[in-house]
Amino acid sequence: MPHEQHEHAHDHSHAPIQADERQGYYQRLADATRNLLIEKGVFTAGDMRAIIEKIDGRSPALGARIVARAWTDPPFRKRLLARGKQTMLEEMDIDPVVADIVVVENTPDVHNVVVCTLCSCYPVFILGRPPDWYKSYAYRSRVVRNPRGVLQDFGTTIDPAREVRVHDSTADMRYLVIPMRPDGTDGWPEDKLAELVTRDTMVGTAEVSIAN
């Protein structure tokens, strides 16, 4: 069946076409698919609105709450590192939805970075939708070969003495990085700590700083 759609796409490429005209085709394909699946009873228009609202509601703030809790509650951090998904679900009522979440921790010796080289697998339900760069060919291809160089593209320099570990995600296994807690935050409450934790620090392309 790739052949069927190939022929179709081919029809469209005979003449130079505007990007919006091409996009129009894929929009109609999406809406035709949606309409057919609703008619066939696979889901309802209401289900569609609800799932969009649910995903729109997920943002890095959720991951930041998990990180802040891990910084302030060592037994929780230990459980989180051992059983990522269950711990988020059972102790924070945050459902990452996917089959499993592996939580890895940055330390003075190790810095972790996450990628999905084959596609774009990402913990959407704890960080929101992935940024464009996470899905880019540049990031997917280079970060496993030259992670320190890629981190430079983000303005992030990792001390050469620290090991950099790159984790390649799959459909069923996504990663969350616990960044290092910055100095000067002793005694801060969890909600104030959570405000320091940005999306990129939980993917590993940035480090947390008080100046963030």
Partner: peptide, 10 residues
């Protein structure tokens, strides 16, 4: 594409 070089990240 893992390990190839598709340029700098934008």
């Amino acid at each position: 594409m893992g390990g190839l070089d598709k340029g700098p990240v934008t």
